[in-house]
Amino acid sequence: MEVIAHSEERMLRITPMADPPGLRLEGELDATRHQELVETLSPLAARGGEVRLDLAGLRFIDLGALRLLTCLVESCGNGVRLVLDNLSPQLENLVLTVSWERLPGLVQGRKGMS
C-alpha cells in the first residue's frame, strides 16, 4: 500500500480511471474542493451510463459533496448513475444515516478494497 505523507493526506487527490470510466478519490473532500470535483466529473457524467467513483482512499466526505453529486446527476438529465465503490465503514454509515433514497442517481458499488 502506498504510504502517503501526512501533509498530503488531507489533500483531495482525483485520479481518472479509463476502464470502466470513473475517478479515484483520495484524501478529504469538503467545500474547499467541490469545484475541482465538479470540473473533473462533469464531462464523464455527461456521457451517461455508469461512472464509478473509487472511494477506498477517501477519508472524509461532507454532506455538501453528497448533495453536489446528486445535483450533478439531476442536471445531466441523462440517467447517469454514480457508482460508489469501496465506501469505508464510516462513509457507508453516513450514507445510510441520510439514506440512499435521498441520493437519487448514487448507488452502492462493490465493497472491499480494490
Binding site: L63, G64, L66, R67, T70, C71, E74, L94, T97, V98, E101, R102, L103, P104
Partner: peptide, 18 residues
Amino acid sequence: PPQSALKSGFGIWGVGML
C-alpha cells in the same frame, strides 16, 4: 426529513441526524 439531497434543508437536517 427532506425528500432528497436536492431539497433545501438537507444539510441542516443531516446535522440533526448526526
